[in-house]
Each structure stands twice: as C-alpha cells, then as structure tokens.
C-alpha cells in the first residue's frame, strides 16, 4: 500500500526525518506515534506530497509519487487544524470538494451521523472548533479511497462524536481499507489501532502490535510502555 525507503527531510538545519524505512501493507489501522516534534506530521505530509523530501523514495499503491498528483485520488486526508474559507457555507464547501474530487452520496449519511443538518446553511466562519472538525471528518470520509490518513482526528470532539468517529473508523477498516492515524490520546490509539509505528529521532524505532510493544518494554499498561521508551532514550 505505502512503501517508504530511506526518507530524509531537513527544515532549515533542523533534521526531522533521517532515514525512515516503512512498509505498510494493505488493510488495518496503523497508529503513528512519537513524542512532540518526532516527525509524525512531516511523515504524513511527505506521503501526501505536501512536504518534499530531501532524499528517499515513496510509493503509494506501487506508484512513485514524485511529481505526481493523480495518486491523491486514492487518499483521504484529515488535516490537523481545520480552517476553511470563512465566507463559504458548509453545504457549499461539501459541494466544492465533491466538484474537485468527483461525486459521492456518502456525505448525506455522514451528515446524519454527526448531526450536522442544522449547520449546513451556516457560514464556516461562525462554527465552533468541534463543529468544524466534524465538517472536516465528513469531507474526509465521504470518498471511498483505499487509504485514509487522519492527523489528530479527535481534536475538539465531544464524547458522542468521538464514539461515532470510532465506529466510522471501524466500518472503514472492515471494508478492507488502510488507515493511518496520529494521535496523542493513548487510550484512543489503544482502542482502535491494530499496529503501531513509533517514531523517535527521525527514524522508526518500533513497528508492531501493542502486545509486542508491551512485551518488549515489560510493561502491562500501553501508556506506560510508551513512556518507558521515552525515558530510556532521553534519560
């Protein structure tokens, strides 16, 4: 599905990724974890072609993504901060993204799921952060792409919407899709993800299931397992 070989990225002398090798096979939920500034978002953005790597090769569905934009038809991306043109109405934004990517019917079901009907005629500038995030989720999940990338999807969501989101992620997984998630909420990660990819100092430190990580660190609790990696390496 996604294959990354020897990926390097430096922002003004600040090395973020130094030789990432990662192979993600189709199907399942993969959580990308790591301390602040470990390059999670940068890694995601290189897959999307938003950040251009200094070195390395990325293939998505066996196609090299360099100088290409068509492959992004195969990816649904949920950005970290949702900020849309303030003068547009929710309805118009959904229509616009459909116009750019192709028509779909799934949006109606998603709007129902997140109870967004009352907001459809409101301007995006007048929405609260959580509601914007729900709109963001609708925009991401309304297409049937084989790869879904979610950057901090839980930001600003109330408990009901969070449950809805988890259900949604589960149904997408059951369809055989591949889902990449970054999050700092460990309970969320533990609940939804099949495998985790732990980034540290610009490289993949650990890749495998949560139970494998617990064994490796001799911790029973997932959150403590993560913390123990960090204290071992930064003590």
């Amino acid at each position: 599905m996604v294959s990354i070989t020897n990926l390097h990225k430096t922002f003004n002398k600040n090395t973020v990724l130094s030789g990432v090798n990662l192979e993600i096979k189709g199907g399942g939920i993969f959580a990308i974890l790591g301390p602040n500034g470990s390059g999670k978002t940068t890694l995601i953005k290189t897959i999307l072609g938003m950040v251009i790597p200094n070195k390395g090769k990325i293939t998505v569905l066996d196609k090299d993504i360099k100088h290409d934009s068509v492959y992004r038809h195969q990816i649904d991306y949920l950005p970290q901060i949702a900020n849309f043109p303030n003068n547009l109405k929710v309805k118009e934004l959904i229509k616009m993204i459909k116009d750019l990517r192709g028509d779909t019917k799934t949006d109606i079901e998603l709007i129902n799921r997140f109870k967004l009907e009352p907001f459809l005629d409101k301007k995006l500038g007048n929405l609260s952060g959580g509601t914007k995030q729900k709109v963001n989720i609708v925009l991401t999940f309304m297409f049937e792409s084989p790869l879904i990338i979610l950057d901090e999807p839980t930001t600003g969501l109330d408990p009901i919407s969070l449950i809805q989101l988890k259900e949604l992620i589960q149904t997408e997984k059951d369809k055989g899709k591949t889902i990449l998630i970054t999050s700092h909420i460990m309970s969320f990660v533990e609940e939804v993800s099949d495998e985790i990819v732990f980034l540290l100092d610009g490289q993949v430190y650990f890749k495998g299931t949560i139970s494998k990580l617990k064994n490796k660190t001799n911790e029973l609790d997932f959150e403590r397992a993560i913390a123990s990696i960090l204290t071992e390496n930064h003590a």
Binding site: R72, H73, P79, I97, L100, R101
Partner: peptide, 9 residues
C-alpha cells in the same frame, strides 16, 4: 493545505 491533499497540481 486541504487543497494540496486533493488530486490537484
């Protein structure tokens, strides 16, 4: 950024 993630040049 949202547009950049879409299949657009």
């Amino acid at each position: 950024e949202l547009l950049l993630a879409q299949p657009l040049k």
